[in-house]
């Protein structure tokens, strides 16, 4: 259902003039912030696995942090267009406020992606990088503070630094991912022949889906999938280069960053290059809100490419 809806939404956005999105940026950011606050209210937000991330809208669940990604892309692209440029402190306040709301849920993965998105858009906009450099020690300090004040985040870091420390506990997830990928070998076990999906691998159809893909279609199949992502990113890069105006360049650039960061952080976590943070693999991992937002963003990219 989400797939069909996503394709329809992509079609609608591709025929919509992306320049008109400038006027939608601020109202949409307000809606995203309100929904991020609403999700924290008991009774409104639905708690799954210890995190309150969903709002029930009848038969479907909606994840406000996914809407926040969309709103941030629109708002920051408009922000850096002209009038709000060179205002670093309000930029930092907005970043801290949104990440703070998402960390309360808690959702470490989305917070990391949103942080990277903010920094990337700032870089793309051609603003003074000295501000970012001065800010980086504070960001690093804040990240350390967040890790050491939360037992679950500290466990994830410990499992990353030493996966052998507790193979049946905190190191279980990353160990099962490694077993999946390793047992796939060069060509994989074959489609639907995964053994790890039989309750061994946690989050097998969501954040860890790449481990199942690696197990079933092997190293070469996984490489082909990464090539498809690379090709998609190359096409979006072409759109950025050929965009007719600054707003189009910033929008397409921000969308490129979101897709690239989500892909990199998810795949890097699968091969233990970064700690597991719970970032979904774009278009592949299970998640209706995420899929709908990604298709909407692709519709915007097509709209920029068509003009």
């Amino acid at each position: 259902m989400w797939f069909v809806l996503g394709v329809v939404v992509m079609g609608v956005f591709s025929f919509f003039d992306y320049r008109k999105l400038y006027y939608l940026a601020f109202p949409l950011l307000l809606v995203a912030i309100i929904s991020l606050v609403l999700v924290l209210i008991p009774g409104v937000g639905v708690t799954v696995g210890g995190a309150r991330r969903w709002i029930n809208l009848g038969p479907i669940g909606f994840q406000p942090s996914e809407l926040a990604k969309f709103a941030i892309i629109l708002y920051l692209s408009s922000w850096f267009l002209h009038k709000e440029r060179q205002r670093f402190v309000p930029f930092l306040l907005l970043l801290s406020f949104i990440i703070g709301l998402i960390m309360i849920q808690p959702d470490l993965g989305t917070s990391v992606i949103i942080f990277l998105l903010f920094v990337s858009i700032y870089f793309f906009s051609g603003e003074n990088l000295l501000h970012l450099m001065l800010f980086s020690p504070f960001a690093f300090g804040a990240a350390l503070l967040l890790i050491f004040t939360s037992p679950y985040r500290l466990k994830r870091l410990t499992a990353y630094l030493n996966p052998e420390v507790d193979p049946g506990g905190i190191g279980y997830h990353i160990r099962q991912i490694t077993i999946s990928l390793a047992s796939g070998g060069l060509l994989g076990r074959g489609l639907s022949s995964s053994r790890q999906k039989y309750q061994y691998l946690p989050e097998a159809h969501t954040d860890s889906i790449f481990a199942i893909i690696g197990e079933e279609i092997g190293f070469l199949g996984s490489l082909l999938l990464i090539f498809l992502y690379g090709f998609l990113l190359f096409l979006i890069f072409k759109v950025i280069i050929n965009a007719k105006d600054r707003f189009g360049k910033l929008l397409a650039g921000s969308i490129w960053c979101l897709l690239a960061w989500q892909m990199i952080v998810n795949l890097a976590a699968m091969v233990s290059l970064v700690p597991l943070t719970g970032v979904p693999l774009p278009f592949i991992s299970y998640g209706g809100s995420s899929l709908l937002i990604l298709f909407s963003l692709m519709g915007i990219v097509i709209s920029i490419a068509r003009r």
């Binding site: 797939f3 996503g6 394709v7 992509m10 489609l191 639907s192 995964s194 999906k197 097998a204 159809h205 889906i209 199942i212 893909i213 079933e216 999938l225 498809l228 992502y229 090709f231 998609l232 096409l235 693999l281 774009p282 278009f283 592949i284 991992s285 299970y286 899929l291 990604l294 298709f295 692709m298």
Partner: peptide, 17 residues
Amino acid sequence: LPIILTTIGLFFIFDAS
């Protein structure tokens, strides 16, 4: 491309879930 990626995803989501 997103449609192809999502189709691949749907197969593996069903397969795993």
